[in-house]
């Protein structure tokens, strides 16, 4: 039962981190808590993209569109039609799942770079629709006035309550995705990442496994979108523009795409970098672009990869293999 082996150092670390996060609103400013809420909803989005890249080897640039779609559903049905919790939220997740299924069915016939281009185009379709449709989606001005609900007497308009709710959802989400990636399904996905043809040859339904993975990832992006819509109170086309998608891709690569927690670490660093830099210079994107270049050129395993390397100095193989599929391993 090596799966349940307990590493005391790790457990202590996690417990301290959990206490730190839970008690956060008691000892930091509202601004800091709000920043953590941002990290959580972008963390969902980043996790969604990171799951596809790290576990499935698919760089999907449609994830931000799913993020925005759920926000729009909340805006349309929660604000404008006045439906009560949990209906707009369930509808948002449902809509994301349906759209992901349809997109997945089209896109999963392709691999790697072509897949990337097609998902980029999908994301841009959604952006174009959101920007140009004024009757339902309100064009460039977007839908405003999205507010969290009061559920069982707990008012989620108070930022502490909203933070705790987001934190619980995030922890739950991370745990479930972790179990998925360690399940036979996740391992099959890893196999497909390494060699789709061989997986098909030994009888795995490669196409459908990829579609389902795409769907799971989309639901995570959708969850992030719901939290984002409640927190910012507004959903508009700029939420889903390409530069946002690229930013999310950066967070995944920054943290380390081959590590489960890479996207979360990357989001944490990128958001705080934004907060710290914005006081000094307007050139946040320039700094990020340069960081991105350096990471891709010199440390393709990201921040976690650097620490990992320092810790046991073994060849960082998994992502290297993922990034260079042309070189077949000798034993394969």
């Amino acid at each position: 039962m090596s799966r349940f082996r307990i590493n005391p150092v790790k457990v202590t670390f996690y417990v301290i981190a959990a206490i730190f996060l839970i008690l956060l609103p008691y000892y930091v400013s509202q601004y800091t808590v709000t920043t953590f809420i941002r990290i959580i909803y972008f963390g969902f989005l980043s996790l969604s993209m990171g799951f596809l890249i790290g576990q499935g080897g698919m760089i999907s640039l449609t994830q931000t569109a799913f993020f925005g779609l759920s926000g729009y559903i909340i805006g349309i049905f929660g604000v404008e039609r006045g439906l009560m919790f949990p209906w707009p939220d369930l509808m948002a997740i449902g809509a994301v799942a349906i759209m992901a299924f349809l997109f997945g069915m089209i896109a999963m016939g392709t691999h790697r770079i072509v897949f990337l281009m097609i998902t980029l185009a999908f994301g841009q379709v959604c952006w174009a629709f959101a920007a140009q449709n004024t009757t339902i989606l309100r064009g460039w001005s977007g839908i405003r006035g999205i507010r969290p609900f009061v559920i069982y007497g707990i008012n989620f308009n108070e930022y502490q309550n909203f933070y705790w709710a987001s934190l619980i959802l995030f922890a739950l989400g991370i745990f479930i995705l972790w179990r998925i990636s360690k399940s036979p399904f996740g391992l099959a996905l890893n196999g497909i990442r390494e060699n789709p043809r061989r997986m098909a040859a030994i009888g795995y339904p490669v196409y459908w496994i990829r579609v389902v993975a795409f769907l799971i990832a989309a639901v995570y992006a959708g969850l992030g979108g719901i939290l984002a819509a409640y927190n910012t109170g507004i959903i508009m086309p700029t939420t889903i523009q390409l530069s946002r998608t690229i930013w999310v891709l950066l967070t995944v690569i920054l943290g380390g795409a081959s590590f489960f927690f890479g996207p979360i670490v990357g989001t944490f660093v990128a958001v705080w970098l934004d907060v710290l830099i914005s006081g000094v210079t307007e050139r946040y994107n320039l700094v990020l672009g340069v960081v991105f270049l350096i990471i891709v050129l010199f440390s393709p395993t990201g921040i976690i990869g650097i620490f990992d390397q320092m810790r046991n100095d073994k060849k960082f193989n998994s992502i290297i293999n993922f990034f260079s599929p042309k070189k077949e391993k000798p034993n394969s």
């Binding site: 994107n285 891709v296 042309k326």
Partner: peptide, 15 residues
């Protein structure tokens, strides 16, 4: 390595 190549062009476009 097609993916790092693509990512480099993404970084360049940001810059």
């Amino acid at each position: 390595n097609d993916l790092p190549e693509t990512l480099l062009t993404v970084a360049l476009s940001m810059i």
